[in-house]
Design a protein around this nucleic acid. Structure first.
Length: 495
RNA sequence: GAGCGCAUAGCUCAGAGGUAGAGCAUCUGACUUUUAAUCAGAGGGUCGUGGGUUCAAAUCCCACUGCGCUCACCA
């Protein structure tokens, strides 16, 4: 092993490597093997919250963490562990001159272990009076500035570890992400849903309308697609006899990136036999409101930007065409002809692409005129059949489906249907998608004959629901960009 | 994919044609109960890359690269 080849010729790096060599000369191992902490900083802060200023205890603890700040020539060190920060006090009345000389060679960013007694300084800072200090890992690169932290967004995303080291808020976001996913997993498991895994490599990408990533398997010499949704495999499990299944996992879509889109993103999809979309609305409310409570101390209100969003259940349920009629005064249900509907839309100032189907017109008007106002949680129901190839036709109206999308903060956060289980209808819908595809719609779905065959064996009536986890995490952590809730967002290589 | 904006020391940022600046960090010294510790001193830069205009470019112009925002497609 050598320390000759430094990462670069930066003198700041060289100074730390020099300190490493000086420590080695003192017989200090810069990268030892293990340490046994007895406590975390936050536990101690909580446990001794009532310890008075100036009080000393004889309670001995071991802690470990990264040096974030050094004051008074090493006498005071702020240590940061996975839970928070705590101050370490190293005094010549306790530690040997040799140990003090060693501490003097520690740098910001080094990871150390400390054994000592708990006290609170006269100024009120909970502190460990060190009886022994040990270097656990030497750092040889300078940390971002201690007060402002790291604010260059490009470095935050490319080198997330630096963001996490310096920005507590960023660490909180990823902890909340974990809490949200854990809540969903536990809630669904408690409701009898089976936690399953289905393929991410699909011979035919299905379950959504999106452009897939294409890859290739060498041994099979076949084209495979990264999944755009797990839907069709989860339904095959329902056909197989599992009555409730869910999957939390990654989907991949080869589309534009934005503040709300990353090429890989996480969804929860679930299917419940013998349920319909009304049941899915209730389940959506329970999942989302429960996730809010799990991350907001049991409260159901969230602040996002300038809005306060109240997730208290139940949420309103309004049809897409009804909301459009409310907002524009135009009842598209009375204009079931695509051409006439397009004329009506254009009269409202909404551009409709040539050849749009009736349902696409309704959806476009909804997107232009209504969507932006849906700040408080709401279920938008009964989407047109033309835009919902996997949803069951509405029991009261053949133009519509039993589908809903849940909105909050003007974002779609959930999408659900009474699942289509009629194999004749499904085949017909697939064929219409194939026609659209052949007409140039790259995002129209492919015909999955194997899935249709599976349906032919019989799928029970079934409710299905998908929720975008990343956007939910954004909402519940007041994050303005999806890159703030994905630890390693997709970035173009720098060089 | 299109439009607009940003890129200066390890980090956070000033500088807008005339010798490259500050704070933190680093190094040297002082200081052993500090809290963004303090005090004195020092070092640190191909101003994203490549062209151009000019006596002179971090600064003006062009191209490129990366990032951000808005729009389009979408969750």
């Amino acid at each position: 092993m050598t320390t000759e080849t430094s990462p670069d010729s930066n003198p700041l790096v060289q100074a730390k490597i020099d300190n490493l060599h000086k420590l080695e000369a003192l017989g200090v191992a810069p990268f030892p093997y293990r340490f046994d902490p007895t406590h975390h900083a936050a536990d101690l802060q909580a446990e001794f919250i009532n310890l008075e200023n100036g009080a000393e205890t004889s309670i001995q603890v071991r802690i470990a963490g990264r040096i974030m700040s050094i004051r008074n020539s090493g006498m005071f060190i702020d240590l940061r562990d996975g839970s928070g920060k705590i101050q370490v006090f190293s005094h010549k009345s306790v530690l040997s001159p040799e140990k003090l000389a060693e501490i003097a060679l520690y740098d910001l960013g080094d990871i150390i272990g400390v054994e000592g007694l708990v006290r609170r300084t006269p100024r009120g800072e909970l502190t460990i009076n060190a009886q022994d200090v040990i270097l656990l890992s030497k750092s040889i690169r300078p940390l971002p500035e201690k007060f402002h932290g790291l604010s260059d967004v490009e470095i935050k995303y490319r080198k997330r570890y630096l963001d996490l080291i310096t920005n507590d808020a960023s660490m909180d976001t990823f902890r909340k992400r974990c809490q949200i996913i854990r809540f969903i997993r536990e809630y669904l498991s408690d409701q009898g849903f089976l936690d399953v895994e289905t393929p991410m490599l699909h011979p035919i990408p299905g379950g959504a309308s999106a452009k897939p990533f294409i890859t290739h398997h060498n041994t099979l010499d076949m084209r495979l697609y990264m999944r755009i949704a797990p839907e069709l495999y989860l339904k095959r499990l329902i056909i197989g006899g599992f009555e409730r299944v869910f999957e939390i996992g990654r989907c991949f879509r080869n589309e534009g990136m934005s503040i709300k889109h990353n090429p890989e993103f996480t969804t929860v999809e679930l299917y419940q036999a013998y349920a319909d979309y009304n049941d899915m609305m209730t389940l959506t409310e329970n999942l989302v409101c429960g996730a809010v409570k799990a991350t907001h101390n049991g409260l159901t209100k969230v602040t996002f930007g300038e809005h306060e969003i109240d997730f208290t259940t139940p949420w309103p349920r309004k049809s897409m065409h009804g909301l459009v009629a409310e907002k524009t005064g135009v009842d598209f249900m009375a204009i079931p002809d695509a051409t006439e509907a397009a004329k009506a839309a254009e009269k409202l100032g909404v551009y409709i692409k040539p050849g749009a189907k009736w349902g696409e017109v309704v959806e476009t008007v909804f997107g232009d005129k209504v969507e932006a106002e849906l700040i408080q949680p709401i279920h938008v129901t009964d989407h047109p059949k033309d835009i919902s190839p996997l949803a069951k036709v509405h029991r009261d109206n053949p133009l519509l489906t039993e589908r809903f999308e849940s909105y909050a903060n003007a974002w779609e956060i959930g999408n659900a249907f009474s699942e289509l289980n009629n194999p004749f209808d499904q085949l017909d819908r697939f064929r219409k998608q194939v026609e659209a595809r052949e007409a140039g719609d790259e995002e129209a779905q492919m015909l999955d004959a194997d899935f249709v065959e599976a349906l032919e064996y019989g799928m029970p009536p079934c409710g299905g629901l998908g929720i975008g986890i990343d956007r939910l995490v954004m909402l519940l952590t007041n994050s303005q960009s999806i890159r703030d809730v994905i630890a390693f967002p997709t970035m173009r290589p720098k060089d």
